[in-house]
Amino acid sequence: MSVQVGDLGRGSGSSGTVPGLLYAAERAVTVIMAAVVGLTLLFGNVLSLALRHGVPVWVARLIAPAVDLSILGVLLATR
């Protein structure tokens, strides 16, 4: 018996409960991750932190987006 590509998607398990729970957990992790990234990028925490530590303004404005994207990359990698 051959396995079709369509058989390998979500809900291919023998029980309908486990895939549903996994999908709900996956959705919850995605929403939480999006909220964390959104709040981090929205308020400019890295820029204000750099300025509080005495980093010159022009350097802080260059570093902040790089750090924000690094955080986003780590969160996506752990996902």
Rank of each mutant, 00 (worst) to 15 (best):
Met1Asp: 06
Met1Tyr: 06
Ser2Cys: 11
Ser2Pro: 15
Val3Lys: 12
Val3Met: 06
Gln4His: 07
Gln4Phe: 13
Val5Cys: 04
Val5Gln: 04
Val5Asp: 09
Val5Lys: 07
Gly6Leu: 05
Gly6Pro: 04
Gly6Thr: 10
Gly6Lys: 04
Asp7Leu: 03
Asp7Thr: 03
Asp7Gln: 10
Leu8Tyr: 06
Leu8Gln: 07
Leu8Trp: 09
Leu8Ile: 15
Gly9Lys: 02
Gly9Val: 11
Arg10Ile: 08
Arg10Gln: 12
Gly11Trp: 01
Gly11Arg: 00
Ser12Phe: 09
Ser12Gly: 11
Gly13Trp: 08
Gly13Asp: 11
Gly13Ser: 13
Ser14Leu: 13
Ser15Thr: 11
Thr17Leu: 06
Val18Thr: 14
Val18Phe: 14
Val18Leu: 13
Val18His: 11
Pro19His: 01
Pro19Met: 02
Gly20Met: 03
Gly20Ile: 02
Leu21Met: 14
Leu21Thr: 05
Leu22Gln: 07
Tyr23Leu: 13
Ala24Phe: 11
Ala25Val: 06
Ala25Arg: 07
Arg27Ser: 11
Arg27Asn: 11
Ala28Pro: 01
Ala28His: 00
Ala28Cys: 01
Val29Phe: 06
Thr30Ser: 07
Thr30His: 08
Val31Gln: 05
Val31Asp: 05
Ile32Trp: 09
Ile32Gly: 04
Ile32Asn: 09
Met33Glu: 03
Ala34Trp: 00
Ala34Asn: 00
Val36Glu: 02
Val36His: 06
Gly38Arg: 00
Leu39Gln: 09
Leu39Thr: 07
Leu39Tyr: 09
Leu39His: 06
Thr40Asp: 08
Leu41Thr: 04
Leu41Ala: 10
Leu42Gly: 03
Phe43Cys: 10
Phe43Gln: 11
Phe43Ala: 12
Phe43Glu: 07
Phe43Ile: 14
Gly44Asp: 11
Gly44Ile: 01
Gly44Lys: 00
Asn45Ser: 08
Val46Ala: 01
Val46Gln: 06
Leu47Asp: 04
Ser48Asp: 09
Leu49Ala: 13
Ala50Pro: 07
Ala50His: 05
Arg52Tyr: 09
His53Arg: 03
His53Val: 04
Val55Gly: 00
Val55Glu: 00
Val55Met: 09
Pro56Lys: 01
Pro56Val: 02
Val57Pro: 08
Trp58Gln: 10
Val59Ile: 12
Val59Arg: 04
Val59Pro: 04
Val59Trp: 10
Arg61Ile: 08
Arg61Gln: 12
Arg61Lys: 13
Arg61Phe: 04
Leu62Ala: 15
Ile63Leu: 10
Ile63Cys: 04
Ile63Val: 10
Ile63Glu: 03
Ala64Thr: 07
Ala64Tyr: 01
Pro65Gly: 05
Ala66Met: 03
Ala66Val: 12
Val67Ala: 11
Val67Trp: 01
Val67Asn: 00
Val67Phe: 08
Val67Lys: 00
Ile71Cys: 03
Ile71Gln: 04
Ile71Val: 12
Leu72Ala: 11
Leu72Cys: 12
Leu72Gln: 03
Gly73Asp: 13
Gly73Arg: 02
Gly73Asn: 14
Gly73Cys: 07
Gly73Lys: 02
Leu75Tyr: 09
Leu75Ile: 13
Leu75Trp: 09
Leu75Glu: 10
Leu75Gly: 15
Leu76Asn: 15
Leu76Met: 15
Leu76Ser: 12
Ala77Phe: 15
Ala77Ser: 15
Ala77Gln: 15
Thr78Arg: 15
Thr78Tyr: 15
Arg79Cys: 07
Arg79His: 13
Arg79Leu: 14
Arg79Ser: 15
Arg79Asn: 15
